[in-house]
């Protein structure tokens, strides 16, 4: 049986809102370690990988592995019914055909209970090895979101160039071009404002902005985004959770 209680419903709300436009049907795999999701978008360009570690929950038990096949659009509708500050408990039997969501208002005795019918979802699971990337950058997630939104007004593609002392975002379109250059900086008082670059090799990679527009929906999950890039391989965009992560692997664009 699964019973996982979030101190605040807002975390699961943010997670679902962050991925529901990238993938619609996905399996939430629950184990003693927490909940994981891996799913690929319909165009097979973007892979979503989520881990909500058991330490995120104020109470968590899952005796044996349970798979919840969820339609995220329906899940999002139900989850919006709860208040951000409510306790949220997910409950499912061992071989469930539904999952129950219980919202408890902390300021009153109100308890709201919803159940979502589950689906049999047959998805392919990809093996993702840890790899050494040419460059790893860390920057404020909100700045990355703004840069990508600004440059998406000009082009469908975002070019990212990384050297040891700068990160350059570029977009070239029919109506004009744009670029934003960032330099590494350490902010001791506000570490979340810092920008760091770790470089093994210079990077020049290009990505579809329509996918990046979906990725930056994770911005509210973390003050910082970690971007790991190697030339001619998928980039990893990561928002860290208190325990776990939301990762997006995005295939680049390049000449064959």
């Amino acid at each position: 049986m699964l019973e996982g209680k979030f101190e605040e419903a807002s975390l699961l709300k943010k997670v679902v809102e962050s991925i529901k436009d990238s993938v619609q049907l996905c399996n939430f795999v629950c184990s003693e370690h927490g909940i994981t999701v891996q799913a690929v978008d319909d165009s097979r360009v973007l892979l979503v990988s989520l881990l909500i570690g058991n330490e995120v929950f104020s109470d968590y038990r899952c005796d044996r592995n349970i798979t919840l096949g969820v339609d995220l659009k329906s899940f999002a509708k139900i989850i919006r019914c709860g208040g951000n500050d409510d306790y949220l408990t997910l409950i499912a039997e061992d071989s469930p055909d539904s999952v129950t969501l219980v919202f408890e208002d902390k300021n009153s005795d109100r308890i709201s209970e919803y159940s979502l019918k589950l689906m049999e979802i047959d998805n392919e699971f990809l093996k993702i090895d840890d790899m050494d990337y040419d460059s790893v950058i860390k920057m404020p997630s909100i700045d990355f979101q703004k840069i990508c939104r600004d440059l998406s007004t000009l082009s469908e593609s975002l070019q990212i160039l990384i050297t040891k002392d700068s990160i350059k975002f570029m977009a070239e379109g029919e109506t004009g071009n744009g670029s934003v250059i960032l330099k590494p900086r350490t902010d001791i008082d506000k570490p979340e404002q810092s920008i760091t670059v770790k470089l093994n090799n210079a990077v020049n990679s290009t990505f579809g902005l329509k996918y990046i527009a979906d990725i930056v929906k994770g911005t509210s999950l973390s003050n910082q985004i970690v971007i790991k890039i190697s030339n001619r391989t998928p980039a990893l965009f990561e928002y860290k959770l208190q325990s776990g992560y939301l990762r997006f692997y995005l295939a680049p664009k390049f000449e064959d």
Partner: peptide, 14 residues
Amino acid sequence: TKKQQNIFSFFSKL
């Protein structure tokens, strides 16, 4: 021209 690559070209299925 640059072509959008497919994620399945980089990761193998389990």
